[in-house]
Simulated assay, not measured.
Amino acid sequence: MAGKSVQVGPEQYFDGAMAILANDGTSGLKIAPLCRALGVTSGSFYHHFGSWAGFVVALLEHWETEQTARIVALAAATADPGERVTVLKELAATVPHEAEAAIRVWAALDPDVGRAQARVDDERRAAVERVVSGIVDDPEVARRLAVLGLAVLVGFQQTCVPPVVDVLGGLLDDFEAIVRAHAR
């Protein structure tokens, strides 16, 4: 394929970065390996992002939008409050768990990544609380259950390496049962 120019957009860079994070962690996420994985030059990278810092900002915004805002919107689109719990549970199984575990490590090392991680956690906790509040009357119980739900996801990502989706499914089934036990 010598002489053929490969065209990739920001989305492919983000997907490539998440794959590197999942496989190699933060230490593997660098411009050269990312470009090599995509079959592009570093010039392409700089054309899209201007700098490493620009890439990091764009990657984190993409992650926040795709793995939080999109999931929240899909769950909220379900009319039945009880069904929203099931939908949210099913969507939680689809996030890139290994990459997110690496992002948490990165967040401990980089304040900008840490702020993005905190925003994602806050958005997810608030979304779970809204979903749980649809079937649990007591706002304090709904708040605690939302914290528990987020703790289940984060704890799974940090302790189940490599992630076993069946284990997460069981944990989320348990969480759903606890939520339903507190239903009106």
Rank of each mutant, 00 (worst) to 15 (best):
G3F: 07
G3E: 08
S5P: 08
V8R: 06
E11D: 13
Q12G: 10
Y13S: 06
F14S: 03
F14H: 08
D15M: 09
D15I: 14
D15N: 10
M18E: 09
A19Y: 13
N23G: 15
G28L: 06
A32K: 11
L34F: 07
C35I: 00
R36T: 09
A37N: 10
L38D: 06
G39A: 10
G43H: 12
G50K: 04
W52E: 08
W52K: 13
G54N: 09
G54M: 13
G54D: 10
F55Q: 01
V56L: 00
E61N: 15
Q67P: 07
Q67A: 11
V72D: 11
L74C: 09
L74Q: 13
A76D: 14
D80K: 00
V87L: 12
L88I: 01
A99C: 07
A101Q: 10
I103E: 04
I103A: 04
I103L: 10
R104N: 05
V105M: 03
W106I: 01
A108C: 06
D110G: 14
P111Y: 03
R119F: 07
E123F: 12
R124H: 15
A127G: 15
V131E: 05
G134R: 01
I135Q: 07
A142G: 08
A142N: 03
A142E: 08
L145Y: 04
V147E: 15
V152G: 04
G155I: 05
G155W: 09
G155R: 08
Q157Y: 01
T159L: 07
P163K: 03
G169F: 02
L172I: 00
D173K: 06
D174R: 01
E176T: 06
I178K: 14
V179D: 03
A181P: 13
H182K: 05
R184C: 11
